[in-house]
Amino acid sequence: MSWTTPLDVAAAVCILLGAVLTLVAAIGQVRMPDLLSRMHAATKPQVLGTVLIVLGLSLRLREPGVVGLLLLVVLLQMATSVVSSHMVGRASFRAGQVRDDLLVVDELSDEQLHEEPRGAP
């Protein structure tokens, strides 16, 4: 028993939780009814899952160089998952790949009839 034991336990818990969240993301891919709902399952529990796994790794490895790299992994993950989920969601909406029967409110389709030219900022 040394001072590193609690850190190792915390690391194990973090990695396990992160793995569970990633598993939930995978289950969501199968269970969700349409593309946009799948996007939620794919990008969201997975952000926290990545953060937890990276946190567990840095608690276990405890090297400054590695921690810097892992921090970078989290930041880039957050920066890129936003853009990719937006682009996929936007493309699917414009292509009409949305199940209207699942939407309670749809304030975008109501408005797109008199929209500015597509692609305009």
Binding site: L36, H40, K44, M78, V82, S85, H86
Partner: peptide, 9 residues
């Protein structure tokens, strides 16, 4: 977008 449950379309 990062907060689960919402995606900017």
């Amino acid at each position: 977008s990062l907060i689960p449950g919402s995606v900017v379309v």
